[in-house]
Each structure stands twice: as C-alpha cells, then as structure tokens.
Write a protein that binds this DNA or RNA. Structure first.
Lengths: 348, 348
DNA sequence: TTGAAAGCGTTACCAA
DNA sequence: TTGGTAACGCTTTCAA
C-alpha cells in the first residue's frame, strides 16, 4: 500500500540534491536583477520599498536565505568572533562563555570556539584561528598562551583578553580589579579579628594570581596581620584546593585562608571540615574569588569577591561590536570593579 | 624623541593595510601559476614534490595562509560544525562540549556555537545556523527545541542529537541507555535493602527524564519495592534538587531517592543533611545520573550512573567526520552504555 | 532606484 | 605534472 505523501510545504521547485536556492535563481524567478535581491536583504540599501517587499515575501515563500559564506568573501567580514578557551572545568568560564556568546549573538555575531588543549602543539591548534578570518578574537584563557604566541595567532586581527593582563601587547585587556578585590578580602579578615592568615595560589605565574596575591599580602602587611603561610596549589581545581588547605593547617595555626579562586576555596573548605577537623568559620575563616554559582549554595556559603561578569561581557561586546579596529590601534587595559560578597565562611 | 622601531620580522613586503597576501600574489612572486599554489596546500594534489617544497617554503617565509572563506565558497564545505547548546550551567555540558570541540579540532573541524536562550525568539536565533552553511549540526540541548524546529533549523544538513531521542526525524540520535541506567539504580537500591523509594524528575517532558523515570519505576515495581513519591523539580538545577528533596521527605518516610541527574541529587543531598536532618546514607540513600566531576568530590561522593562521554564524543566525531551524508540518509538511534558508579551516598 | 558587471580568493576542470 | 579559466554566491561600483 502506498504510503501517503505528506508534502512538506514544497512551495517551489523541489530541492533535488540539497543545493540551496541562490540569489540569482530567485532573481530570475521574479524577473528582477540579482543585485535587487542582495539589496532587499541589506538594511539601508538603496531599494524601493515595494520591490523589497516583493522580494522578501517571495524569498520567505521559497525559503531562500543569503549564503553567508559568499557574503563573507565579498565583504571580507565574517561576523564570526574567535573565542579562545582552554579550561571549561572551572565553572566560571562556562558561565562567562554562555553570557558572552549570547550577547554576541544578539548583535549578529557568532562564536567560533578554539579550545586549546595544554601540552599539545599550540601553533598547530592556532593555525585554524588564523585561517578562518574571524573579525576579532576574544581570549578567555588565563594561562597556556604566551603573549608572543597570541600575537602570532591573532596576526593583526583585533583581539581582546579577558581576565588576564599583558602589557605592551597590541591587544586590549579586560579584567576585574584583582588586587583591590584581594585587598578587600584582607580587610574583611581584619575586621573579623583574624590575625594569622594564609594565601593559596592557583597557578602562581598567572597574572590573576600575581595580582590577587600582591593585593592580599600587601594589605595584610599594612594592617599588621601575620602571613602565616602560602601554598601554591599548582592548578585551579577542587582537588588542589583540598591539598593546599590540609598542608596549610598542618602544624601551623591559622585564622583565615584566602584562596586564589572559588574552586580552590570550595575544595579547601570541604577538606578543612571533613579531614582537617576544623569548624568554618569558627576555627578558621575561608574566602575565595570569582563568585561562581556554587559559592552561593547553602552548603558552601562562601565569602568571595564577585567578578562583574555582566560588565565584562557588556564592555567586550561593545568593543568587539563597534570599533573593532580601535582594539588594534589603541589597545587599552580596562579594569572593572567587582564586589565583596560576605557569606558564612567568614561570619556566623 | 623618535621612538625606536622594533621591526617585527617584516620578512617581506610590508602589510600596509592589513590585507593578507593572496595565492595569486604569491604565485606571481614565484613565477608559478596560482593553481600550483593551491595544489601545494592541498594534500594529495597532483604536484611535483620540488615545486610544492618551493611554494610551501616561500609561503612560510612571507607568512601566507590560504583564505579559508574563499575555500569554503568554492568547495562548498566549511569545516565548521554548528553546536547548538542551551544550558551550560549543568557541568555535564561544558565537560561534553570541551571534549567534543577538541576532538573535532583534531580532525580539522571547528565548532561554531549557537547558544539558544530560552524564552526568546527561537527562529531568529536559529536563522544564523541556516546561513552559515555548517557541514553538520550537533545538538546538545536536552530541551527547548522541538523536533520540528530542529528540522527547520538544520534544513537538510546532517544533524545529530546528543542526549535526546526523537523518533521519526531525519537526524541521528545518540544517548546513553537511560532506562537501563535507571534500572541499575533501582536494583542497587534493592540490593542495599531499600524498600520505599522516590523519584525526582528534572524537566518531566524531556526524553532523558522520561526514559530514566520509566526505567526506574518499572524496575522498582518488578522488584516489589514501593514508590513512595515522585517529585517534578521543574528544572535540572541544584536549587530545584533541594526543594524536591525537602518536599519528598515531608511526612512520608523514604529509604532512597533517585534524582534525574547529579546536579539535582547534589542539591537534594545538601538539603537532606542540612535542612532535612537526615543522615545520608544511614537514614536515606541518594543516587544521581551523569557522573559529573562534583559527584566524585569527597564531600558528595555520590552514587550515580556514569554517562560514557568519551564514547559519545568518539561516535559523534566519527559520524560527523566521515560520512556526513549518511547521517541524513540513514538516521539511526545509537545507545551507548554507561555504568553504575557506587559511592558513599548509597553505602557506608 | 535599478541592472550589468567586476571583483572577493579559492577550487576544479580542461588542455597542453 | 602544469597553467589557464570557469565557477562558487554574494557585494559593490558604475551607468542608465
């Protein structure tokens, strides 16, 4: 028995092979020039309203869409932003990427992901970035790539670094005021009466770490507190946080620990309570940095310094969306201010 | 005073404006045809080794790279895979995306992100997907998009759904065996002597939820256990998990709760211990699904059913990398098996 | 405002 | 194996 045919809106010529309709074909069907079709789809182009109407209407009927690739070639503009990432394990990054890509989409820009895996051949991985002619590059990789490699990879394309600051490089950098944030944590510890404090670094050579470390230690000294110990966790992970915390309380007595980011702090927190036999905040206070979603979970309730993700996204999108060239010609270092979020790990 | 010029390896003609060298220019400089240049960069093309050598060497010197956009246009192949996502809050997805995009990169494919925000105009958001001529589409969005919308959005392009199964649609689906996994959880509960069990749904209408729910409930009945209650958390989030857990233990007595995913389970776990006054696993056992990184954290130590992310990625990349057309012509539903991971929330 | 035609930088076919 | 040349599907002058 013949199966019923459920003719799916085959308004026009069948697709045969799956080649899409072109502007030229559409133009011929309508008896107008191909240029007219192009203009119909170009906002602000010089075309009479009725003609545009007619073209757009028919285009919708036969489901015509301009081919973006061809457009890229002739306009030499791709509407694609390259996003260089290397760590999606730290929830801070997915959160940032999610909002960033949505904001970009809203102004017609798509995100092409370049997920750099550590250890492997970086140049090879970045070659693609150079070939795809992206309109701009946003780097969200706190680590791994040297400024030199980045310059090479972006090769004269507008680029902007998030959460990392490199001086004397022809790209803009945008970061929160790490050092002030860390100062604020130190002050908060001080106000709560903690005298002997410790600092746990993530990757010690990263600029975020250096700034947070500097801000914290400096303020600690200014306030006359004692920096009992410092640990270098070696990476920004939960497990590293656990290890560092246990190491810090071993022998020495400490009132408060500031971890370079929330993921470390959360690991440390669990370890202190479960293996270290400490009560937090009664025996020891804990603070982190970033304000990831988990920090607000009732179980952790972690005091932290909140990164202004929305502001970062807003500024980045603004820069990338408009005067991309300015990113090249006048690279600037933009500092956005976060805010101290006091929660239970430093209070009662 | 004049600033010193730091001539940055200007091996060849200065870039003036930042227009890249073209194959034609390169060819002229070398006195060969432009076709030769193209062939030099095409593996397996018919070109004499010495000529290729000469071209590649010179290309490297002047830093020439073939323009991928032009290549896309003439080959009508973009080497770009569209990745449709809608939730990066659940750590399962970033973990998947990270491995997926890296695996794709390894075979020369880049990932173009389409981050669909719920609530807003879907068609508008997906129009870009249709215009960019991606070679294939990978959908990692458990929810939001109807099969119909997806068909429209992919319009005859090879597509593959991860973690979601839609029958009678011309795209392949790949998912773990949710129903068996849920059965395994039920059996595990049974073996540990739990009689009164509960189920917490995420989004109840999603296929993952339906399959897990069905698998669990069915096995529970077969084993003669009692399904004390079911809750619909309404979303796959930590907070929803908390709420659902507290609701479930209110009044009724329950031995074990199976949450539709880990994020819910973790929220539930914290709530049970901290607000519900329950000991886990002594008073009540808890299990989740997915095996996200947090499930293995010592603090949670959550029993769960592990999704075979690596297998999923392997199969998807295989499909997408080779016979993309087969995805269209012979869509299949692929089930990959995960494994039960017994941890402390169901044991001692 | 409209149409014709010249690019955009490749790939691919056809001769040589 | 090589070079010449026609696509690829759009944008953008240049005339009309």
């Amino acid at each position: 028995m013949a199966k019923e045919i459920s003719k799916p809106q085959a308004t026009s010529a069948d697709t045969g092979g799956r080649r899409a309709t072109t502007a030229r074909e559409l133009a011929k069907m309508l008896g107008v020039s191909q240029s007219a079709v192009s203009r119909a789809f170009t906002p602000g182009a010089s075309i009479a309203a009725p003609l545009r109407e007619r073209i757009l209407k028919f285009a919708a009927e036969i489901d015509y869409q301009p081919n973006a690739i061809a457009s890229m070639l002739s306009k030499s503009r791709t509407n694609i932003i390259g996003i260089v990432v290397s760590d999606m394990r730290n929830p801070f990054y997915p959160a940032l990427i999610e909002r960033l890509s949505r904001a970009l989409q809203r102004i017609g820009l798509q995100s092409l992901l370049f997920n750099i895996a550590p250890g492997t051949n970086l140049e090879e991985q970045l070659t693609a970035l150079r070939r795809y002619n992206v309109d701009a590059v946003i780097v969200i990789s706190a680590t791994i790539l040297s400024g030199q490699t980045l310059s090479w990879a972006t090769e004269g394309r507008p680029a902007i670094l998030i959460n990392r600051v490199i001086e004397d490089i022809n790209m803009s950098c945008i970061a929160c005021n790490n050092s002030e944030g860390a100062s604020a944590i130190a002050e908060h510890f001080y106000e709560r009466g903690h005298k002997r404090v410790a600092y746990v670094a993530g990757l010690s050579h990263t600029t975020t770490n250096r700034e947070r470390q500097y801000g914290f230690i400096t303020r600690v000294a200014e306030l006359g507190m004692t920096l009992t110990s410092q640990a270098d966790a070696g990476e920004y992970s939960y497990e590293a946080g656990r290890r560092a915390a246990l190491e810090i309380i071993k022998g020495k007595s400490v009132d408060a620990i500031f971890f370079a980011n929330d993921l470390l702090a959360i690991g440390g927190l669990d370890a202190l309570r479960e293996e270290g036999g400490c009560r937090v905040p009664e025996d020891i206070a804990v603070a982190g940095f970033d304000d990831i979603a988990m920090a607000a979970w009732p179980h952790y309730n972690l005091t932290t310094f909140s990164q202004p993700i929305d502001d970062i996204v807003r500024v980045v999108v603004e820069k990338v969306g408009s005067n991309t060239m300015q990113l090249l010609e006048q690279p600037e270092i933009i500092r956005l201010s976060g805010e101290l979020v006091k929660r239970k790990t430093t209070g009662l």
